[in-house]
Design a protein around this nucleic acid. Structure first.
Lengths: 215, 215
DNA sequence: TAACAAATCGAACGTTCGTTCTAATTATAC
DNA sequence: GTATAATTAGAACGAACGTTCGATTTGTTA
C-alpha cells in the first residue's frame, strides 16, 4: 500500500483514442502494435513471443505491460484498429456512389490498397480470427459483420441476384481478396493495379453476367 | 549398447505407404494424424500441444514419438496426405473430360467435397502453410504447385483469357474455395450443393463472360 | 514356455513462455 | 530544487512446452 496508485495500462480495449494520454504515449503504443503485427504475421499468434515484440518495439519485456494488459489485448487492438480503418475508409469512398460497378471497384481498391500498405495487419486479421475469445472475440466479430454488410450492400446494388446468392458472392469475394496475401509479392508492386482490374472484371461479369467493362 | 537397435519411427516423411509396417501400425498412425489435424485446426500449429494430440489419439505422450520423429513431421504428414489425396481425386475425375464447364464444376466439387469430409485437414493445409520449413516446406510446396497447375489447366481450357489472367483467376478461385471453411457450417449440410452451384455459376460467367449455364 | 520384437508407459530434461513485482529512472509541475 | 507522476529496467514466478530415455508391458513365433 506504499504506492499511490497502481498504473492501469490505458486499456487499448477502450475506444478513447488518445484523449486521456499524451501523443508520446500514443506514438509508442502504435510502434508496439506495429511490431506486434509484424511478429504475429510471421510466427502466428501463439508462436509470437512477447519478448520478441518488445525487442522489435524498442521496449523492455515488462515495458509491454505498461501499454497493454495482456498479449490478447494486443491482438485485439490490432484487429479493432484494422477493421475500424477499413470500415471508415470504405464508408468514405462509397459515400454518394450509386453506380454498382464503381461500388465494386471501390470495395476491391479499398481492401487491396490497405493490404499493400499494411500487409502484416491484414494478415493478422484474416489469419488469427479465432485466436481471441470472450469479449474481445465478440467485439471484433461485430466489426467484421459491419464490414461484411458494407461490402454486401455494395454488391446488392447490382440487383441481379437474390439475397442468398448475393451473400454467397460476398463471401466468395472476401475469399479472393484475403487469399491475395498468400501469393502476392509486394516487392513487385508494378502489377498491383492489374490484379485489381482482373478481380473487378471477374466479379463484374460473374455477378451481372455481361461484359460491360467501362474503361 | 545393450539394446539391439533403437526404434526409428517409420518415417512418415517417406512415401512408403505401409509396405514395411503392419496394418495395425498404419491404423494407429492414421488415428494420431486425425487427432493432430483436429487439435491443430482448433488451436493452430504452435498452440497445439503434443500432449493433447496424444490424449485425443489414445496414446501416451511419449507414444507419439514412436510414430513420428517430431511435431513438425506430423504437420508435414497431414499436408502431404491431404494434397496427395486432392491431386489424385481430381486427376481421376478430370480424366477424359474436355468440356471446360464440366472441368470447372469438377474442380469445385472435388475441393469442397473434400472439405465437407475432412474440414480439419483442409483447414490445417490452408492455414499452416508457413509453419513448416526446410525440406518439409519444399516438398509440400511442390505438391501445392502440382495441385495449382491441375486447376489452372482446367481453367485454361476455356481459352477465353491470356495466360496471366488465367493464373490470376486460378488464384482468385482458390481464395473463394479456401475461404469457405471460415463461414460454412457443415452441420447444416443441406445447402452444400447450392454453394457449389453458385460458385461455379460465378466463375463460369466471370471467365467466359456469358450466361451459358446448362442444368 | 522361452525368446524376441513391437508398442506403451512414466518420469524427467532443459527451455521458453506470459505475467508480475519492486526498484530505478526520467519527465513534468510547482 | 523538490515533489509527483510517467515510464523503463531487471529479476523472478510457476506453468507449459517438445523431446528423450530406460523400463515395462503386450504381441508374436518357436
Amino acid at each position: 500500500m506504499a504506492h499511490p496508485d497502481k498504473h492501469i495500462p490505458t486499456d487499448a480495449a477502450r475506444q478513447d483514442s488518445g484523449a486521456t494520454q499524451g501523443p508520446k504515449f500514443q506514438k509508442k503504443l502504435t510502434d508496439i502494435l506495429s511490431s506486434a503485427a509484424e511478429v504475429i504475421a510471421e510466427r502466428g499468434f501463439q508462436g509470437a513471443s512477447v519478448r520478441e515484440v518488445a525487442a522489435r518495439g524498442g521496449v523492455g519485456l515488462s515495458g509491454i505491460y505498461y501499454y497493454f494488459k495482456s498479449k490478447d489485448e494486443m491482438l485485439f487492438a490490432i484487429q479493432r484498429n484494422t477493421f475500424t480503418a477499413l470500415i471508415a475508409m470504405l464508408q468514405e469512398k462509397l459515400a454518394g456512389v450509386t453506380n454498382p460497378e464503381t461500388g465494386l471497384r471501390l470495395v476491391v481498391e479499398n481492401h487491396l490498397g490497405y493490404f499493400l500498405n499494411h500487409p502484416q495487419e491484414l494478415k493478422v486479421c484474416f489469419h488469427e480470427l479465432d485466436s481471441l475469445s470472450g469479449d474481445y472475440y465478440q467485439r471484433v466479430l461485430s466489426l467484421r459483420r459491419e464490414y461484411y454488410d458494407l461490402v454486401r450492400s455494395a454488391l446488392a446494388r447490382f440487383g441481379k441476384s437474390d439475397e442468398h446468392t448475393t451473400s454467397l458472392n460476398t463471401l466468395f469475394l472476401f475469399g479472393s481478396l484475403n487469399w491475395v496475401n498468400m501469393w502476392y509479392d509486394p516487392s513487385e508492386r508494378n502489377d498491383s493495379q492489374n490484379v485489381i482490374e482482373r478481380l473487378v472484371d471477374l466479379y463484374l461479369r460473374g455477378i451481372t453476367g455481361a461484359t460491360q467493362i467501362s474503361n
